[in-house]
Amino acid sequence: MAEDKVRLGIIGLGAEGGMYAKFLDAEMVPNMRIGAICDILPEKKEEADAYGVPFYADYKEMIDSGDVDAVVTTVPHYLHPEMGIYALQQGIHALVEKPVGVYTKQANELIEYAASKPELKFGVFFNQRTNPLYKDLKALMDSGELGKLRHTSWIITTWWRPQPYYAQSEWRATWGGEGGGVLVNQAPHQLDLWQWICGVPKSVFAKVAYGFKRDIEVEDEVNALVDFGDGATGTF
């Protein structure tokens, strides 16, 4: 890199991408700045111009431009794997928003390719692991002070979204855009914390409700019963 600050390329200037841009513009990340912005909507160029950075309509052109050292993908979930892989192929660090992908095969392809590039930084945005509450809980569980895990009940009710949230983007809460509902949007953070702290279940039985409380086509409520395989059980 030709300067001290990492130049971040933001792919997708919607709600999430806009937050990244505002945080960086406000210098909330000392060692990083906006390098360029990419969005398929031409009207987003005006916002990019306001930040004084180059604008691209094609993410590959932005990655190949020399304007960025790293990228973040704030786009529909199906696109995360291909964008992450392309960035890494070009020697660009990559941070993909959760979920890493919709299909297990594509997600694994990205993870495996990233592992083959140890000189580059790659990550999935599971920021809840940095929360002191969860870090302390993880340390407590790992210490064995509480004994062997027998049962876990993980209930989350504060991450709900109102109807206007789903209306802000056409791809939100659709099978073709998001690939699902709460399980691939709000729940990934909780699922990550749950398995990080308690372990990965061996079997899962779940019941989901589609468009239960919101006018959407995908699931907006989930209840699951899991078996950890060693006598321990859990609910989510």
Rank of each mutant, 00 (worst) to 15 (best):
W159N: 13
Y59C: 13
D142A: 15
E170Y: 07
E217K: 11
A36G: 07
V68E: 11
G144N: 05
Y20F: 15
F205S: 04
E217L: 07
L133K: 15
F228M: 08
F236A: 06
R214W: 08
P132R: 06
G229P: 00
R33I: 13
E47Q: 15
R33N: 06
Q90M: 08
E217Q: 10
E82A: 11
V68Y: 06
K148M: 03
E112N: 14
D220F: 10
P188T: 10
V100L: 09
R214F: 14
N127V: 07
D25I: 01
L191G: 02
I111M: 15
G12Q: 11
Y86M: 01
L79Q: 04
V200P: 09
P42C: 13
A114D: 01
D4N: 02
R33E: 15
A48D: 05
H93G: 07
A232M: 10
E221A: 14
L95P: 01
A50G: 13
K105V: 13
E16N: 03
G177R: 04
Y59L: 08
F236G: 05
K213I: 08
M32I: 04
W175Q: 11
M28R: 10
T152E: 11
G12S: 07
E112M: 12
E46R: 13
F122A: 05
M28P: 04
V6M: 07
S116E: 12
D142V: 10
L146D: 03
P76C: 06
S116K: 15
D220Q: 07
V29P: 02
L149Q: 12
D220Y: 07
H77L: 01
D4I: 00
N131Q: 01
L8P: 00
V75R: 06
Q106H: 14
D64G: 02
L133A: 08
V102D: 06
S143D: 01
I34E: 02
A36C: 07
F125A: 14
